[in-house]
């Protein structure tokens, strides 16, 4: 926690610089696609949000494992703070995808496997956000939320491979661990920088929220201790 305080300014600064660079490059410098024209620029917002929707949920699942098996108190708080942020970025992914789909595909929304599984991810986030706050005893909320998060994690490989397993309107991945990316370098670079920038923005938001949550818990503890000592005196 002390460490996070020291790192935070640098994290926030790097997040700002990289995001502005990536988005500015994508919007003004990078070339238009040969068939999509300028609409391809929506990719520089959409793809980082889609990546963070999945990565954020992976973080949520890891926190849930730490919470269920090792009962790590910070993991509970982290899961509570990741939830709403992940939901926000998933909503952003769906909204920008819709704005990209209308001019290119000719439809705001279709029920193909990729779009549907991401919508399910969004509802899993919302369910987690509601569930961890639904109990009077916070520990029970953390426990229920962790189980929901882990059950929902089965959706992550479905999202990733939906475009390979089934016919979808959504195109398959352009960038993979193996093989050359099927994207020109002049478009790949701003995309990677924007993705890294958004990731650091996400990390900054979660770190700040987590620090606030730890302080709020400390305040509650101090107030309770004070009330107890006053009533005992």
């Amino acid at each position: 926690m002390r460490l996070s305080g020291a790192v935070l300014p640098y994290l926030a600064a790097a997040a700002l610089v990289l995001t502005v660079t990536g988005l500015g490059w994508g919007l003004f410098v990078s070339p238009a696609d040969w068939q999509q024209g300028d609409a391809v620029r929506i990719m520089y917002v959409h793809v980082p949000c889609a990546w963070l929707a999945s990565a954020g949920y992976t973080g949520l699942a890891v926190c849930s494992i730490l919470s269920l098996i090792w009962r790590h108190p910070l993991a509970d708080l982290a899961a509570v703070e990741i939830g709403p942020v992940g939901a926000g970025f998933t909503a952003l992914c769906l909204a920008t995808g819709s704005l990209w789909g209308k001019p290119m595909w000719g439809a705001w929304w279709v029920w193909d496997a990729r779009l549907t599984s991401v919508l399910v991810l969004f509802f899993l986030y919302l369910g987690h956000v509601a569930l961890v706050r639904a109990f009077d005893d916070p520990t029970r909320g953390y426990r229920a939320g962790a189980i929901l998060a882990l059950v929902g994690a089965v959706n992550l490989p479905i999202i990733k491979f939906s475009v390979d397993w089934w016919n979808t309107l959504h195109q398959p991945a352009s960038i993979g661990l193996t093989g050359a990316p099927s994207m020109a370098p002049a478009m790949l670079w701003p995309l990677l920088i924007a993705a890294l920038g958004y990731t650091l923005v996400f990390a900054t938001i979660v770190t700040v929220r987590l620090r606030a949550a730890v302080m709020e818990r400390r305040i509650r503890g101090l107030l309770m201790a004070r009330a107890a000592s006053e009533s005992g005196a």
Binding site: L27, G37, G88, A91, L92, A95, T96, F202, V208
Partner: peptide, 26 residues
């Protein structure tokens, strides 16, 4: 720039939503 309204709304959302999260968190 073709499809400008779609691009403008996408970038607007893409900047404003994270910014709102950052500001409220701080």
């Amino acid at each position: 720039m073709s499809h400008l309204p779609f691009i403008a709304v996408a970038y607007g959302l893409g900047v404003l939503v994270p910014l709102a999260f950052v500001v409220t968190a701080f």
